[in-house]
Amino acid sequence: MVDAFTVENIAPLLRVENLKTHYSIKKGVFSRNVGSIKAVDGVDFHINPGETLGLVGESGCGKSTVGKTLVGLERATAGNVFFDNKDILSGSGSEMKKVRRDLQIIFQDPYSSLNPRKRVKDILEEPIRVHRIVEPQLVSKRVDELLELVGLPRAFKNRYPHEFSGGQRQRIGIARALSLNPKLIICDEPVSALDVSIQAQILNLLKDLQKELNLTFLFIAHGLGAVKYISDRIAVMYLGKIVEIAKTEEIFMNPQHPYTKALLSAYPIPNPELRSKERIIISGDVPNPSNLQKGCNFYSRCPLAKSICRDEEPLLKGEKHPVACFAVNDEKKWNAGIRL
């Protein structure tokens, strides 16, 4: 891990500007467009080389859609994504093929992301052949190397995915992502389907691989423990927007946004002695993303909400620790509001 903050003016590997991914809702015989779900609605962030950015949030906040849009599995509605200073949203097919080599993804469910009718060998060989990573006669050697890299015996390459446990399958998924020597790997909830003791194995493996191969990660997860363990910086998402972004220690020791505070406070801590600690329990559910009102997306559940929060949308502001909240950024305006 490189502490990218000490190095000023380092060019980020990935820069995302005002990214929007909307899904249209179609209805009726003619599939008329009747509205849209704003899964990702104006997201800005960057990731420096060798860094891990954690992206956390609850289900439906759009964190996985960000990942999918970055690798081209979803089409962005608006915004720019620069990878290695190239705009990857407007690139041509052949250019994109090159970019995809450098930008890989690991999926959540190791059971559904591996083709059950292919042997491990075939799963790993295909991308190497398609992208002509090595000479044809060296492909099988490369597969052996990959298996070794993720801690699986070579003999496993002739087996089918169903013969493996969840943790082993996730290792195969990681080996597949590594097969093209990528620069950035998007890890979309890579450990949430696994048992606790296996989670630790995979998290350690990812950390080791990062050091060894100088990888950059976007680590998408809802488990705060895992995100804290692996990330250098963390971005917190709520309903398609980033509400807070800061270095990992900052987020955990000094959270600013009321949603981040509630999220941290709700997380059950494995220590019964701390059971009596005061919790911030926010009421209600996440609002329906197809029917969002103007103003701050969190105001319906926010303990600090005032009339300003309902009327105006807070922007992500701040140098070192950007937060999107009137109560934090614009106290004057917030104080003037009426308590909801």
């Binding site: 296996i198 194995q201 350690n204 423990g225 997380y267 220590n271």
Partner: peptide, 20 residues
């Protein structure tokens, strides 16, 4: 030992149970 804690300052490495 294998659960990452959010209440600790920094954890260098998680210990894990080998095997399945």
């Amino acid at each position: 030992a294998s659960i990452p804690h959010i209440e600790y300052e920094e954890e260098e490495r998680l210990s894990s149970i080998p095997g399945t």
